[in-house]
C-alpha cells in the first residue's frame, strides 16, 4: 500500500481496534496484523497522540503481577471513526468510477 495512504489510515485503524472492547498494545498490533503491519515504535506515537487529543483514554490493569495499559475509545474517537466511514463512501464512489467497465459509458 502507498506509504502516504497507510500513514493516514493508521490512526483510524488503531481506533477501530478498540472500537468494541478496550484493548492493550500487543493485542492491538495482533488484531491489526491481517490488515496492516505496524511496529511497536510506530504504534507508540500514534497512541500518545490519540491520548493527548482525547480520542482515547488509558487505564492500567494488573496482569500476572505487572501492569498492563488498556486503551478505551472516547466519544471523540467514535466521532472520528464515523467521519471516516462517511468520507469513505465518497471515496468508494470515486473507486467505482475509476474501475467502471467500458460499456457503462
Amino acid at each position: 500500500m502507498d506509504a502516504q495512504i497507510k500513514r493516514g489510515l493508521l490512526d483510524i485503524c488503531v481506533l477501530a481496534a478498540i472500537k468494541y472492547r478496550d484493548s492493550y498494545g500487543y493485542q492491538i498490533i495482533k488484531d491489526m496484523k491481517p490488515y496492516m503491519q505496524i511496529s511497536e515504535s510506530t504504534l507508540y506515537p500514534i497512541l500518545r497522540r490519540l491520548e493527548e487529543g482525547k480520542f482515547l483514554s488509558v487505564y492500567s490493569v494488573e496482569h500476572n503481577g505487572r501492569l498492563r495499559k488498556y486503551y478505551h475509545i472516547e466519544k471523540k474517537g467514535m466521532k472520528r471513526l464515523e467521519e471516516f466511514t462517511s468520507e469513505w463512501k465518497e471515496i468508494m464512489d470515486v473507486y467505482s468510477f475509476i474501475t467502471r467497465e467500458a460499456d457503462a459509458e
Binding site: 492493550y24 498494545g25 500487543y26 493485542q27 511497536e40 507508540y44 497512541l47 500518545r48 500476572n64 505487572r66 501492569l67 498492563r68 495499559k69
Partner: peptide, 17 residues
Amino acid sequence: TKSIDYYSEMIDDRIED
C-alpha cells in the same frame, strides 16, 4: 516513564506469548 512502561509491557506480552 510512559515510553519505558510501554516497551516493557510489549516485551513482557511477547514473552508471555
